[in-house]
Amino acid sequence: MSTLFDQFSFWSAFWMTIKLTLGAAVGSLILGTIVAVLRLSPVPMLRFLGTSYVNIFRNTPLTLIILASNLVLWAKLGVVMANSKSPDFFNTNNFRLAVLGLTVYHASYVCEALRSGVNTIPLGQAEAARSIGLTFGQSLKEVILPQAFRGAVVPLGNTLIALTKNTTVAVTIGVAEMAAMLAKVTEDDPGLLNQAFVLTALAFVVLTLPVGLAVSWLGKRLAVKR
């Protein structure tokens, strides 16, 4: 068991998973909100752009997106996301590309979560906002989005949990997180495979279980009472 911690450096893999999750969570929340605003806007063209974004990225496998961020974006198009002179260039660059891929993919789910949050708001709220003379931007900022975020806590939390599990896909471009550790154990020391699997699986339960509980609790607590 101790080999898993020493030789295969479990803790650094665990920390990498957390870093990927946090980075992509912040990124996809921002990007997803922007796409949601586009999808709700009164301008048909902007709505179309938002819908296209969601349709494109929700229907593409995450593995393909992450692979493309490395093979296409970096290797062929020369998009560099780290200092190419630093000794740790490949690791940092791949980590950031993975965060980018995760962000782009999950933003479409954040957008849909927010839209389902908007669906929980009664018609009267938007009508009231309009009838006191608020513009679209004002009613979105003061009335709709604050309630939408509160109504969307549960789907947003589910997206966060899915994101945590999906960070494993970063192994595709060699980011040293927990799936990469499991793959390495398979190659170098197959005898430890069972232990490594139980350990990494438990680590994910530890990461996602509190989020799941917090989400159900917050979802009830924050939901706007009607």
């Binding site: 549960v154 589910n158 997206t159 949990i161 899915a162 279980l209 799941g212 159900s216």
Partner: peptide, 19 residues
């Protein structure tokens, strides 16, 4: 009524919506 396809009707739990 709504959200069956989006998975929005599902309760929160580890595993969450199918993403």
């Amino acid at each position: 009524d709504t959200g069956v396809v989006d998975g929005a009707a599902e309760p929160a739990a580890p595993g969450g919506t199918a993403v």
